[in-house]
Every structure is written in C-alpha cells, then in structure tokens.
C-alpha cells in the first residue's frame, strides 16, 4: 500500500512514462526538453515575481498559462496544478493566497528538479 502511494506521489511530481510517451521515447529530445524547461521555468519564475509585485494581472495570467502548458507537456503534474492556481488567481483577481501558492510552486519545482536529475541518470 505504501509503495503504491509512494509511486503515485512520484508520478505526481514527474510522470516519466507519460513524458516518455509524449516525446515518442526519444531520449535525446527528452534531455533537450528538460534543459529548455528548467531554463524557461527559472526565467518565467522571475518574471512572475515581478508581475506579482506590480500586481500585473494580465502578465501573471499569461506567464502562469504558458508555464502550465510546459508542465503539462513534460507531465509535471503538481507543478501544473500550481500554475493553474496562479492563473485562476489572476482570472478571479483574488490575490489572498498568492504568497502561499508561490511558496508551494517553488517547493514543487525543487522536488521536480530532483526527479529530473534521477530521470537523466536513469536514461
């Protein structure tokens, strides 16, 4: 039971099988996409910080939407949920929980990085 739960949690961080399928089991492409993702995420995360501090609603929605799409593509499920939550904050214009969601986003990104390193080693 515990093993199943653990697997589910791992798959929520990064569903490697789904990602593999999406890139048609092309390892080279997988590696390249992961590198692009990390770089793009770090860049957009900084822009998101700026958008949040300046309460730039439109930009925040755009960034969260873009990141959400990238997360869906690499099957990073937890991180995708965080991006969706931020996108909804922007759409509803209710900023109450933005700080805690951003914290969760960073934590989930760190967890994802560990999974990415493991995946790269396995590949």
């Amino acid at each position: 039971m515990f093993a199943k739960k653990e697997n589910k949690t791992r798959r929520d961080v990064l569903d490697t099988e789904e990602f593999f399928e999406r890139v048609q089991r092309d390892k080279k492409l997988l590696m390249e996409v992961l590198d692009i993702f990390i770089e793009d995420f770090k860049k957009k995360r900084k822009e998101l910080e700026t958008a949040v501090s300046s309460k730039d609603n439109k930009q925040m929605i755009h960034l969260a939407h873009s990141l959400k799409g990238a997360c869906a593509n690499i099957a990073a499920k937890n991180l995708r949920k965080d991006c969706l939550a931020i996108e909804q904050i922007g759409m509803n214009n209710d900023w109450t929980h933005i700080a805690s969601i951003l914290q969760r986003l960073d934590r989930n990104f760190e967890e994802l990085l560990v999974s990415i390193v493991q995946l790269k080693n396995n590949v």
Partner: peptide
C-alpha cells in the same frame, strides 16, 4: 508557439 518547451517537442 511561444513556449519553448512546447515548441521544441
């Protein structure tokens, strides 16, 4: 496609 990840894949 503006997102580089989606564009690449």
């Amino acid at each position: 496609e503006d997102n580089p990840v989606n564009q690449k894949i």
